[in-house]
C-alpha cells in the first residue's frame, strides 16, 4: 500500500501550479472564456514547452496535470486531446484533437461503439464519412476530429479534418469547454480503429476521460474551497471575521471533508486506469459520482459564503461552477452512475 505520488510527480505538480498561477491567472482565463473561440491558442505552445504534450506522460502524470488545470480552469483542448483523442490514437498528438461519438440513440461512450448512424464507406484506398454527431467537446478549436462511425464489419474510428461547413458551435453554460455539432458529408477520412473494434477502445476512452475529469473536479473544488476560506478569513461583519461564525465555518469544513474523500477516489481511479486494475470501471464510476457532485457543491458553498460578490459575473467562481456542472453531465449523471454501482453490488 503506497498512496502517494512520486517525487517526480510532485515536482511536475509544483511546476504546473506555479506556471498556471503566474501565466494563467484568473483574468487570462476570463478573457479566454469570453473570447469568440473560447481559448487563447498561444497557450497550446506554452503547454507544449512545459511538457504537457510529452508522449512519455503516464496516467498519474495526467492526473496531476488535470487537477491543476481544473484549479486554474485552463480553457483549451488539452483534456480533449489527452483524454479523448490520445487513447484512440495510442499516443498524445501534438495538435488539438477531439473525438465525436454521441448520437441521439447512443449518447455515452460505452454505447457509442454498438451502432452508429454516421457511416464510413470505402472510396478506393481512402474512406468517406457521412452523418452527424452531437455535443463534440472543443470541436470548433480542434485541428482534427476522430469520429466513431459504422462500416461493414461494425463500428470503427476515423480521423478527419474539420469540415468548412458542418461544425455548429452550441451555446454552452461553461464557455471554457464548448460543445459543437458535427455534420459530415462524404468527408475524406483515415481509418484509425478497424471496424468492429470501436467498443473496446471507447471503454478505454471512457475510463481515461472520466478519471481525468474527476481529477479536474478535485482541482475545481479545491479552488472553490480556497476562494471561500480566504473570503471567510477577511470579510468582517458584526465586528468579526465571518469565518468565526459556525454557520459559515462548518459549511466550509464540510467542503473540506467532502474534498478529501473525492480526492482519494479520483487518485485511486487514475491509478486503477494506469494499472489496468480489475476493478477499474468501478473505481472510475465511484470517483465520478463523488468528485462530480463534490465540485458542484463546493462551488455552491463558495458562492453562498462569498455573499453578493460570489453572485456577480465579475467574480470568477461562476466559471468554476459551470465547469463543475459540465463535468457532472459528462457521459452520464450521478444517478446513472449510482445505478451502475448498485448493479455491481446487488445483481
Amino acid at each position: 500500500m503506497d498512496f502517494a505520488f512520486s517525487e517526480e510527480q510532485e515536482m511536475l505538480r509544483a511546476a504546473a501550479r506555479s506556471w498556471l498561477k503566474a501565466q494563467y491567472p484568473a483574468d487570462r482565463m476570463v478573457s479566454a472564456a469570453d473570447s469568440e473561440r473560447g481559448w487563447d491558442p498561444r497557450s497550446w505552445q506554452e503547454l507544449d514547452s512545459l511538457g504537457w504534450l510529452d508522449p512519455g506522460l503516464g496516467m498519474l502524470e495526467y492526473a496531476v496535470l488535470a487537477e491543476e488545470a481544473g484549479y486554474a480552469l485552463y480553457a483549451g483542448p488539452w483534456w480533449s486531446t489527452a483524454a479523448l483523442a490520445a487513447p484512440v490514437l495510442g499516443a498524445m498528438p501534438d495538435q488539438p484533437t477531439t473525438l465525436a461519438w454521441a448520437e441521439p440513440g447512443t449518447p455515452d461512450l460505452r454505447s457509442a461503439g454498438r451502432s452508429s448512424t454516421m457511416t464510413a464507406t470505402r472510396a478506393g484506398e481512402a474512406w468517406e464519412l457521412t452523418g452527424s454527431k452531437l455535443r463534440v467537446p472543443d470541436l470548433a478549436i480542434a485541428d482534427s476530429v476522430l469520429v466513431v462511425a459504422g462500416a461493414e464489419g461494425g463500428s470503427g474510428i476515423w480521423q478527419t479534418q474539420l469540415p468548412e461547413h458542418g461544425v455548429t458551435p452550441l451555446s454552452t453554460m461553461d464557455t471554457t469547454r464548448r460543445l459543437a455539432g458535427l455534420r459530415l458529408d462524404s468527408a475524406a477520412a483515415t481509418m484509425v480503429i478497424e471496424p468492429g473494434e470501436a467498443s473496446d477502445v471507447l471503454v478505454r476512452v471512457r475510463r481515461r476521460s472520466v478519471a481525468l475529469l474527476s481529477c479536474e473536479a478535485v482541482g475545481i473544488a479545491q479552488r472553490a474551497l480556497d476562494l471561500c476560506s480566504a473570503h471567510a478569513k477577511e470579510r468582517i461583519q458584526f465586528g468579526r471575521p465571518i469565518g468565526s461564525y459556525q454557520g459559515v465555518s462548518h459549511r466550509v469544513a464540510d467542503v473540506y471533508t467532502a474534498l478529501q474523500l473525492s480526492r482519494s477516489l479520483a487518485y485511486w481511479a487514475a491509478w486503477a486506469v494506469d494499472a489496468d486494475a480489475p476493478d477499474v470501471d468501478h473505481a472510475v464510476t465511484v470517483a465520478a459520482v463523488s468528485a462530480g457532485e463534490g465540485a458542484v457543491r463546493a462551488c455552491e458553498s463558495a458562492i453562498q459564503v462569498m455573499g453578493g460578490i460570489g453572485f456577480t459575473w465579475d467574480h470568477p467562481v461562476h466559471r468554476s461552477y459551470k465547469r463543475a456542472q459540465w463535468i457532472a453531465a459528462f457521459d452520464g449523471t450521478a444517478r446513472s452512475r449510482r445505478a451502475e454501482v448498485a448493479a455491481a453490488l446487488l445483481d
Binding site: M1, F3, A4, Q260, L261, S262, R263, S264, L265, Y267, W268, V286, V289, S290, R335, R337, R338, A339, E340, V341, A342, A343, L345, L346
Partner: peptide, 21 residues
C-alpha cells in the same frame, strides 16, 4: 433503494481510500 445504497457505498469507498491516504 438502489440509488440510496449506491450513494452510501460511494461514501464508504471515499472513506476507505482516504484512510489509505
Amino acid at each position: 433503494v438502489r440509488d440510496r445504497i449506491a450513494g452510501l457505498y460511494v461514501e464508504l469507498e471515499g472513506l476507505r481510500y482516504t484512510n489509505f491516504r
